[in-house]
Amino acid sequence: MDKNFKTPTYGGQAIVEGVMFGSTNHTVTAIRRKDDSIEYYYVPKTANNLLSVLKKIPFVRGFVALFESARMGSKHLSFSSERYDVLPGEEAIPNTKDTSNLTMAIGVAIAGVLSFLFGKFVFTLVPVFLAGALQSVAQGKTAQIILETVLKLILLLAYISIVSMTPIIKKVFQYHGAEHKVINAYEHNLPITVDNVQAQSRLHFRCGSSFILFTVIVGMFIYFLVPTDPFWFRVLNRILLIPVVLSISFEVLQLTNSMRYVPILKYLGYPGLWLQLLTTKEPDDKQVEVAIASFEKLLEVEEIGVGAMEVNKNANSASHTIFSN
């Protein structure tokens, strides 16, 4: 890849039987329906002056990104979950004109963030109590923090490995791989064809999986700076430091992405890539076709506007589009 090639602002998310891609102003999903057709779902990104300002502030922008990701991702995930396994014509078309959409979107986003934070609490505190119970084996602050980190990694890897065994999550992970492959093909300035996309890596430096792993690594170094005794204080500071760990981890993710073409420094992002070996799977050609359809439709919207999302009335095509605000 040309090192002067500007990294695009496109990001993505794997969903049930499909992929969502987003840019600064638009988000587009493509899903594979039960009858093998492809359906699109479009949601615009609405401008917010406050969020625009906050996104420029280091150590704050990570929380804004988390909120926006939850808000947009939940809409697309809900759409795909409700429609992928239903034959076209049998489903109820959502009322996208409902004036309560904004309130619902904000509520879903908050619920998504709270769910993430709850999971973070669980993955943070369970290792603390396990390490505390093993103080006779691992004595002293350094040993306790290292043991706590190892237990956290084991818990994380075990959880991902177990959920990846379920058929639906395995498919989501395959679409996750397809998403990365499409972005990698685009960033290498290649024609977006199935063959070119399949030849790409399913790993990517900007993946949210890397962010999750960085919270474990960053947390370990931060914990070395605070007391571990008495035990109740250790539990308390782990809770209070969650926002600190999240904000610093986001900055580390941004740093590793910017360093991915720098010799030696590129290896800073490798731990996150290793975790993606679990959170992504190799997609088949049909899954790649869906990811390509989503990305190309987003590019069309970027080029000619939302008119690109018009229902395809070609008699030979079963694909169509749903809009949401």
Rank of each mutant, 00 (worst) to 15 (best):
K266D: 10
L253Y: 06
N312G: 06
A293Y: 01
K75Y: 03
V252K: 03
T166D: 08
G305M: 01
P271Y: 08
V301A: 07
V262S: 11
Y41M: 07
I57Y: 05
V216W: 02
V218K: 02
D229Q: 14
L299Y: 02
E187R: 02
K266E: 10
N184M: 07
L130R: 04
A158W: 07
F5K: 13
V218W: 03
T46R: 15
Q254K: 15
K152G: 15
T149S: 15
L265S: 09
M72S: 13
N25A: 09
G73R: 03
F214S: 09
G132I: 06
S69T: 13
Q135Y: 07
N257E: 08
N316M: 09
D35G: 13
L298K: 01
T228W: 01
V60R: 09
V252C: 11
L51W: 08
I162P: 01
Y42G: 06
M72A: 14
S164P: 05
Q254P: 00
A14H: 05
L54Q: 03
F67I: 07
T321P: 02
A133V: 03
G12R: 01
D36K: 15
T280A: 08
V43Q: 10
L236R: 06
I168N: 02
I217Q: 01
V218R: 05
L253Q: 11
H176W: 05
N316D: 12
N4A: 11
I183C: 02
M104Q: 08
A138K: 05
R234F: 14
L125A: 07
F129Y: 14
S81I: 08
V128D: 06
Y41Q: 02
V108Q: 03
Q198T: 11
D85S: 14
G307M: 01
E148A: 04
D229G: 02
H176L: 05
K34M: 12
Q276V: 09
E68H: 04
V53D: 00
Y10R: 04
P167E: 12
Y42E: 09
L155D: 05
K120L: 15
A293D: 01
R238Y: 10
R83T: 11
M220L: 15
N314V: 07
K170D: 12
G219S: 09
L157K: 08
I168T: 11
